[in-house]
Design a protein around this nucleic acid. Structure first.
Lengths: 142, 142
DNA sequence: ATAATAAAGGACAAATTTGTCTTCTATTAA
DNA sequence: TTAATAGAAGACAAATTTGTCCTTTATTAT
């Protein structure tokens, strides 16, 4: 709804990969899609783009799979921007190209603080935050 | 991004119709789509559904067109629900069917207050609020 | 009644998003 | 160096959203 399906899968997959990565484990696409309940081939595509954009890393061959280097510096916002772009936070809710603070659409003033808040939440949330709670069974990915 | 294109058009069209309605004028689809800069036939479809859902009214024939009865009771949320449904406010950001307060997805806690706030803003905003400012040239619809 | 007007409705088409399948490429281990 | 493993890449396909066009129906004025 607010995020694309691709982005939903991207986040859930990344959280799962991150949790495995903390245990120094790489994880294959089959395990990922099984863990988050997503279509395998489609998820593969999505992870490929995340790798291309240096969000995740991957290795081919036996004992290969996806993993996360520098997981501390990865925040939700990075994954969202990589898959859906920045539109959620900047483009006009009513689809007006010229909408701005000085030339606002009718909803501009109401929506701006809310989306700013959303941006802050996503920006301040490192993936590692989720991992601990995930392993405590506090969160679900599927 | 957060609203569908259909919903964007629906809102902009409704605001325009409301402003004309305050002057006891009905307005044709050509004028509407011209005023808000939207594809004519597509906008017609959208207004048809709004009429079917009793958001707007319409009259056929010469001097016909779209108009708004009881414009005081029409709020943004009604238009959003009529075109996009309620998903924006209730369905899980990460697309998990089972996501809830007791079985939350990793983003549940962060996102809930924000979407609640969004719902409040949309629910408290009567269309009439926009009309005055629109006529003062304070807002743009295109 | 007839002509003109304007929304309603249906069939169709383009674009985008979501998803599948098959082949290619790189890596590892025997 | 061969076989097995696993991601990368490309061509397709289904579904959804966005958009067009043409015909029908209702209303008004002459």
């Amino acid at each position: 709804m607010i995020l694309s399906k691709s982005c939903e899968y991207a986040i859930r997959a990344s959280v799962f990969v991150a949790s495995k990565s903390q245990k120094k484990q790489r994880v294959g696409i089959n395990e990922v899609s099984e863990a988050i309940g997503s279509p395998r081939a489609f998820t593969a595509k999505i992870l490929q783009t995340l790798v291309r954009k240096n969000i995740l890393s991957s290795a081919k061959g036996p004992a290969g799979g996806f993993y996360l280097e520098r997981s501390d510096s990865l925040h939700l916002i990075d994954i969202i921007r990589a898959t859906d772009g920045n539109g959620l936070f900047i483009s006009c809710v009513l689809g007006l190209r010229a909408c701005s603070d000085t030339q606002p659409c009718p909803m501009h003033k109401q929506v701006k603080p809310i989306r700013d808040q959303l941006l802050i939440e996503f920006s301040n949330k490192p993936i590692t935050d989720f991992v601990t709670d995930l392993e405590r069974g506090k969160y679900y990915l599927k």
